[in-house]
Nucleic acid binder design. Structure first.
Lengths: 337, 337
DNA sequence: CTGAAAGCGCTTACAG
DNA sequence: CTGAAAGCGCTTACAG
């Protein structure tokens, strides 16, 4: 009692020091448009400054019933795809004056539900949920959640607006490109059908192949998650006689593994085999041969998600999905055969 | 008035429904050790469940003067080094029941200060500040901050406990290793002296070279930030006659650029030139030749930072720094000459 | 333009 | 084991 040696100053301390009411202090500190005399404002500001007052956002949130923060849940960060996505989210959020509460789930559904609960308890104004390739139906539907949410990446939709890149079209474009180079025998590297993004890319591949009358061959190699899996899979496949001239990997990560496997098995890329991925990691331009890939606009999706969330927060009722397009980035790992 | 159609339920609603006081509800929901009759507890739990009550962590934080959240500021995420660090932090934080408020600064000092202010306003219990290679003195000292903070990565210390990897020793070890392979002419790729981690690695390099009586040559190439910078720098250096047989890059990122440059200039790695980096990105094992590197324990540093912060929060007064060691990962980009 | 006061949803001595 | 009540630090009608 008396002078707490430490202890953050409160609005009351400032009011006392400035000789005004707490209401006035609140009004100037919050920077509202509420009219306050210039001289009063100056007094308050000066008092706040000299006391080292830093407003308590928790109290503010409680009183206003909005926290100006958003919750973001994402599987992991070492994957550059997600890293870019989060960078996009953070940057847009900062612009909007929103803080970001981030939770990683490691692709574990239970952890995702826990994370969402925690975020909800902290009263985030909204949620952005980035699909793990392995995620299934969100535990709660849009209605039961209580706050607006937007999903990034295809996942069983529970009534949430969805932002995604047109994976099917991307798969189509990639295949069309490889076909145009003369390739007729394809190997597609993927994880599992339940990984929607990857599966859609495969569908796009077959969409394109279906438009061709010429003969072709397309083999799917699944169960691939890490670079190591891709490496092993490709190595074994070619060792046992695979004749594919083009390896289409569902992600640059797999493509990297394929590239390494082919190099170690003395195949020349792109002369003997072409390799192509999806995502366009920063590193993909610097491996040799450099990697041709379908660039997924991860950062943009992040930004868009915040924009959409903002619209929802501002009372928008639009639950429309948003679909972006991937871009073909042609590099050294593919060429006309 | 009456029944708000939406509106989150409060502890009061639960109390009413369970026929107990709010104090009792608080005690069971908070899961304290405070004694509550089993039957009462059951009633409360049931009421909470059926009302879909989710406690307001904001109110709780306000009342308890602690938020069980930590603020983390980091330059960026597309850099796998930081991504791993944040994964370590998140994972340890989750274990400790701490939420993570994340802010990216893009290496901009002003943004870092803004981020810290925001975090402080949100009353995080503590701060973890990951050094940008380009960061300078933290705007505020340990005392003026008001909450415990720990720094990761060397940066001008303002009285904060620091977690770092012994970069000087890592530089020493790397050079010793290259020397043992027979290399006597080195090129060191780096950014700028103010990037402490990188500079320390260079110091370690010269520490080792200083122990040798044989002749050697060591050239520093600085101003390198991106893969592209490294590519250009290496390309030009060799084109104008550089004779170094070993390129030591201050980060795998630079090493990747160097690898690409050498490949494009038809140098064989490791036969003509050896390349080595620092960090050990996930991709480093899958480029060809695979990259020899000093593995920096980024994720561990993240975990340690949380542990240290926890100790500080629990009243520890220990401001001791913590130094980890890097690990030599020998791969295909280096070999005896 | 300014202030008194109720309220946001919890926690926690304090008194049974 | 239980509850009444003050308090955490803001915001915001409401009344001047």
């Amino acid at each position: 009692m008396g002078g707490a040696t430490t202890g953050a100053k409160s609005i009351r301390d400032v009011a006392r020091a400035a000789g005004v009411s707490v209401a006035t202090v609140s009004r100037v500190m919050a920077g509202t448009s509420y009219p306050v005399a210039e001289t009063t404002r100056a007094k308050v500001l000066e008092a706040a400054r000299s006391l080292g007052f830093v407003p308590n956002a928790l109290a503010r949130s409680l009183a206003r019933a909005r926290s100006d923060s958003i919750g973001v849940v994402v599987p992991r960060l070492i994957n550059p795809y997600y890293a870019a996505m989060i960078e996009g989210i953070d940057s847009a959020a900062q612009t909007q004056g929103l803080s970001m509460l981030l939770s990683l789930t490691a692709g574990d559904e239970a952890r995702r539900e826990t994370a969402i609960s925690e975020l909800l308890a902290r009263r985030v104004d909204g949620l952005i949920i980035c699909a793990g390739a392995d995620d299934h139906v969100p535990g709660r539907s849009a209605e039961t959640l209580g706050v607006p949410a937007v999903l990034i990446g295809r996942q069983p939709n529970g009534g949430f607006p969805l932002i995604t890149t047109d994976n099917r079209q991307a798969g189509f474009t990639a295949t069309e490109y490889l076909w145009s180079l003369g390739h007729r025998r394809f190997a597609y590297l993927t994880s599992h059908e339940s990984w929607h993004d990857f599966h859609d890319r495969a569908l796009g591949m077959f969409d394109y192949l279906g438009t061709r009358s010429e003969e072709y061959e397309a083999r799917i190699f699944d169960g691939i998650i890490t670079e190591a899996d891709a490496y092993r899979s490709v190595r074994e496949a070619y060792a046992s006689g695979l004749k594919a001239t083009a390896v289409l990997a569902s992600t640059d990560r797999h493509a990297l593994g394929a590239l390494a496997a082919l190099a170690d098995a003395d195949y020349r890329v792109p002369d003997d085999v072409a390799v192509m991925g999806f995502d366009d990691y920063v590193t993909s331009a610097y491996v040799r041969p450099s990697l041709t890939t379908m660039q997924m606009p991860a950062e943009t999706m992040g930004r868009m998600a915040v924009a959409k969330l903002r619209a929802l927060l501002d009372g928008g009722v639009e639950v429309e999905d948003l679909t972006l397009q991937a871009t073909l980035i042609e590099r050294g790992s593919t060429r006309r055969i």
